[in-house]
Nucleic acid binder design. Structure first.
Lengths: 126, 126, 126, 126
DNA sequence: GTGGTCTAGACCACC
DNA sequence: GTGGTCTAGACCACA
């Protein structure tokens, strides 16, 4: 359960990425109230200021917004969430294709392998 | 040009992985004579003993073999290379699916996205 | 010389405004290297972190940029500076018109007064 | 509706300024009978004594006068009102020019901007 | 209670 | 030296 951070990159950036994923994955739903800054900081075992900085960044991206004295909420803008989700997906697709290319596998074959091999090793096809 | 190693895992393991990729990708071709251990060690900026250990591991996997006084060669066994290649590909497929799942994207959608988004950002579709 | 801050608004915002003005007014010229964060903080008698936050905000606006380990510089984008300058000017114009309106003076008269009264009380007409 | 006062300056001075504006703007017309001190004090949420002090100041300026048992009236002296109005206008003009100068904009440009930008952002040009 | 701000002081990588 | 990050701890307004 211990969240572990990559020492190479700022913690607040990694927090941004983690929470961003929680939002696009639906773990934090559209319009949902987030746990308080202090609570999130406690959960992630970081300083509240660090968490604050991460949340400020997400607010910059409009993925969350603040209700004064009330808490922070996930955006209601479903289209935005979808857009960010696509961006993340694009990244993963690129990573996949790059890694396949590095072992000499073309785009066509990468697609074929995904269809052939997908779902093995406990990764559900559904 | 500087190969960079992950500090978390033994270097020789990482060498194994790199050379394995060079073989399945065809950079080192079937039956080809490899550069000498010392040469490879120099290129990768590692100790020759470390490189030796890596090559021993690959020989164990039968991906390379030694001709007593003559050097080391990539296996002639095309089927084996193909098998390893598939194993690596399987790994990549799993990584891809796992990462997509983490952002809330199902197998079906992961396939669709690969077809839709593949090739953007300078990653050739060919 | 003591910079005084309005207690009602965050200091870092006021720093942003002050430095923004220094840039559009040409006190900090296009492309010029800014004093170091620590130096600016000292001059303004604020904590370096507060100054850092202000500068980060200006970097967000692209009015300044950072050269790693070298310092921060005013943008080279003259058009951007001009745009910001116009925005600030628009604000002043609005303030002027609003204040004139509050004492019952129309836009037409506000313009006329500016031409008639401008330059008195030591405010140069040039 | 809540009048808000600047904590830095005496409230009675701020009342003087507000009522003075009401007079020159025509909200309180030439020769008009003012609401009673108590009424004004209630409206502005200040102590009647404070309001009394403000009105005394305005009487000093001759902007209002008292009819012994009858109440207070706005002056009939249109020229005086006009003069005060010009003084206030002069102040606004100076403020405008000073603020423009602070962002590096000359008198000539300040006039041009007023003509170009005036009326935007919901501030009527009429 | 909530988020927001500020300070002091430390450590880091980079060059 | 430079900027960047992180922590600890404090105080504030709001309601």
């Amino acid at each position: 359960m211990e969240p572990i951070f990559d020492n190479e990159r700022p913690i607040y950036i990694q927090l941004v990425e983690m929470i961003r994923i929680d939002i696009v994955s639906g773990k934090f739903e559209k319009g949902q109230r987030l746990p308080s800054v202090r609570e999130l900081a406690l959960t992630m075992k970081v300083n509240p200021n660090t968490m604050q900085k991460a949340l400020a960044e997400l607010e910059n991206e409009k993925l969350i917004y603040t209700e004064r004295t009330n808490g922070k909420y996930v955006t209601e803008d479903e289209a935005l969430i979808e857009k960010v989700k696509k961006e993340l997906a694009q990244e993963k697709v690129n990573q996949y294709l790059r890694s396949m290319k590095s072992i000499g596998i073309s785009y066509q074959t990468a697609v074929k392998y995904l269809q052939e091999l997908g779902g093995e090793d406990g990764i559900s096809k559904v």
